[in-house]
């Protein structure tokens, strides 16, 4: 009886949520792709930071479509609230953009970081191979993934907290020690020099 009720609820939820989820997925994916493209094509570093912000928000939206609410909010908190603002700060404090150092050429010949035609070709081949491999791997687990998404529509923060405090306690403590080290290092660097 109970099982039937739960099944009924699940199918209802699936029907009701499916189109909304699809819309959300398409919107976030579009936001991410378009802003990533804009980020690559713009020559203004402040604009690039802003597009990066939009791309990160799009990633948060993708997390939401996977029902990872905690992860999505953490993404917004860490990247939008912290990392992007700090990047903007760094850009402004180090003199902002230097117009002369920006190349005018679309495909510079021997720029070491940008690459040439042969590196583009190699990169394209490698990425195609990776894409095929990843797609075939994903297809293997496709049924399972869809199943999990349909069933586990539950808030994640509680189970995340429990796992962090039980199974993954060591990793959690290691990360906290790392962060403490970073904090102490920052304080050491910012401290006024002794004479």
């Amino acid at each position: 009886m109970l099982v039937v009720a739960i099944e009924k609820e699940r199918t209802f939820e699936k029907v009701a949520i499916v189109s909304f989820l699809t819309i959300l997925f398409i919107l976030s994916a579009l936001l991410m792709l378009v802003s990533c493209l804009a980020l690559l094509l713009t020559k203004n570093i402040m604009h690039a930071c802003t597009f990066l912000l939009a791309a990160l928000l799009g990633v948060a939206g993708l997390y939401l479509t996977l029902h990872a609410d905690t992860l999505a909010v953490t993404q917004v908190l860490v990247y939008v609230g912290g990392v992007v603002i700090l990047m903007l700060f760094a850009v402004v404090l180090t003199g902002g953009q230097d117009q002369e150092s920006i190349t005018k050429e679309k495909f510079p010949h021997l720029a070491p970081l940008f690459g040439s035609k042969s590196t583009f070709l190699k990169a394209f081949l490698v990425s195609m191979i990776f894409f095929v491999a990843a797609a075939s791997l994903l297809r293997l687990g496709e049924k399972e993934i869809v199943h999990v998404v349909a069933v586990n529509y539950a808030p994640t923060i509680q189970s995340l907290g429990q796992l962090l405090m039980t199974d993954y306690l060591f990793a959690f403590e290691l990360v906290s020690v790392l962060l403490l080290g970073a904090l102490i290092g920052a304080a050491l660097i910012a401290r006024p020099m002794k004479k």
Binding site: T50, T74, L77, V80, I85, L88, V92, I157
Partner: peptide
């Protein structure tokens, strides 16, 4: 009623700081 409601408010309101900074810079 988000299960991460408090967290969400803290996270999304940080856009304000970004807006203020960009407004000042631009």
């Amino acid at each position: 009623h988000l299960d991460v409601g408090v967290f969400y408010v803290v996270a999304i309101s940080s856009l304000v700081g970004l807006g203020i900074f960009l407004g000042g810079y631009a």
